[in-house]
């Protein structure tokens, strides 16, 4: 018995096929070399952005910049930094409990069909242009509820903005708890809410925390929801009913001032620099933390 076909090798590996074979593999090799270059499209702009914004921001960034309020055409970033933190904390105070409980309900308590409705609504909220939320905050909270442009209205709007991210993340977290554990818990006589609190919650917690961090990182960089709800102010807020400054709003207000007029544009670049640092650090923390807790979980079930 011979492996060679009766007609000889030439028949199923003819010269033309050999040419085609070589060409196919040549194409493949070149695509393999060229395709990874697309990553440059992401890497070059992000490095360029970080480099040039640092280059514009750092030479004059001092401790005084962080501790003085913006004035007419000079000053620092103190008011907007405090305002950003206040808005974020207020927003998280609303979005975190609401988001976690909403995700818990849609993943565990509600029948699948109703859970799908809640998840679908959450997805749509995530996909909404943020300027729509700014309009909603202005018409509903500032005007209809009569809160006026204030820390309260801005914080609540920001909370509504971050809420769907946290709700979706915690729904995912609760849903990805291995179903065996649910069967075991319920089989051992636990009630559903005992399972939720004692079994599912500790396992889902790292993923929920990642979601909260990501939502905060996205929320801190938002401009449009705050422009007319928190308005702007150069001074740190002292009550809930005052207009409040924030870093993104400072950039928005100052970015197109003439360079000769004062240091506003530099101030805007410094605000941008701070935002990048905050956001990148938060992203890195989330990534490392998620990786660590994933390994821990794998150890638990692996």
């Amino acid at each position: 018995m011979s492996a060679v076909p009766a007609s000889g090798w030439a028949d199923w590996f003819s010269p033309t096929e050999l040419v085609r074979f070589r060409r196919r593999h040549l194409v493949d090799r070149w695509i393999g070399r060229l395709v990874p270059i697309v990553f440059l499209v992401a890497i070059v702009p992000i490095l360029d952005l970080i480099f040039w914004i640092s280059q514009r921001a750092l030479p004059t960034l001092t401790w005084t910049t962080l501790t003085t309020n913006p004035t007419g055409n000079a000053g620092g970033l103190y008011g907007p930094i405090v305002g950003t933190v206040d808005l974020l904390l207020l927003g998280l105070a609303i979005a975190v409990p609401l988001g976690i409980v909403s995700g818990l309900s849609s993943a565990i308590f509600l029948p699948f069909r109703w859970g799908e409705v809640v998840r679908g609504a959450g997805d749509l909220l995530v996909g909404l242009p943020s300027v729509i939320l700014g309009y909603f905050g202005y018409f509903a909270l500032v005007i209809y509820f009569g809160w006026g442009a204030s820390l309260l209205a801005g914080g609540v709007t920001l909370g509504f903005f971050m809420f769907p991210y946290i709700a979706r993340a915690s729904d995912q977290a609760f849903s990805s708890v291995p179903p065996d554990l649910k069967d075991a818990a319920l089989g051992a006589g636990a009630r559903l809410r005992q399972y939720a609190r004692r079994v599912a919650f500790p396992i889902a917690l790292p993923q929920i925390l990642s979601g909260i961090f990501l939502a905060a990182a996205i929320g801190i960089g938002e401009t449009a929801p705050l422009l007319w709800t928190a308005l702007f102010s150069s001074y740190p807020p002292t009550t809930l009913s005052q207009p409040t400054g924030y870093l993104t709003g400072l950039i928005w207000n100052y970015y197109d001032e003439p360079l000769t007029f004062g240091t506003e544009v530099t101030l805007a670049f410094q605000a941008a620099f701070l935002l990048i640092v905050i956001v990148v650090v938060m992203n890195v923390i989330v990534r490392l933390y998620a990786e660590r807790s994933r390994k821990k979980l794998e150890g638990l079930y692996g």
Binding site: T248, I251, A272
Partner: peptide
């Protein structure tokens, strides 16, 4: 690692893209 850079693009605030685009 490379996809990490792509994901990082999502984290940059919109207004920062704006000022970078406008001036740089």
């Amino acid at each position: 690692l490379l996809n990490g850079f792509v994901d990082l693009l999502a984290g940059i605030p919109s207004v920062v893209y704006g000022i970078w685009g406008f001036w740089i």
